[in-house]
Amino acid sequence: MTEKPAAPPANSVDPRLLEVLVCPVTHGPLDYDRKAQELVSRKARLAYPIRDGVPIMLPEEARKL
């Protein structure tokens, strides 16, 4: 099978979605940790996981920092 070179991997988050996501607790900005697949809210001290390309923006699922 041939794929278009520009096609992102299946489990990556669409950058247009990433751009508008904020922390649901503080409404502050998030840092994208590509390696850990986490979205980090420094203010809330929470790291939201990204599972199979789906950001899980639920505080109960986040890792406490």
Partner: peptide
Amino acid sequence: PRVAADEEHLPFAPRS
């Protein structure tokens, strides 16, 4: 494109 979100605590930036 999907995101798990609580309708009571939306994770979207203002005016986005």
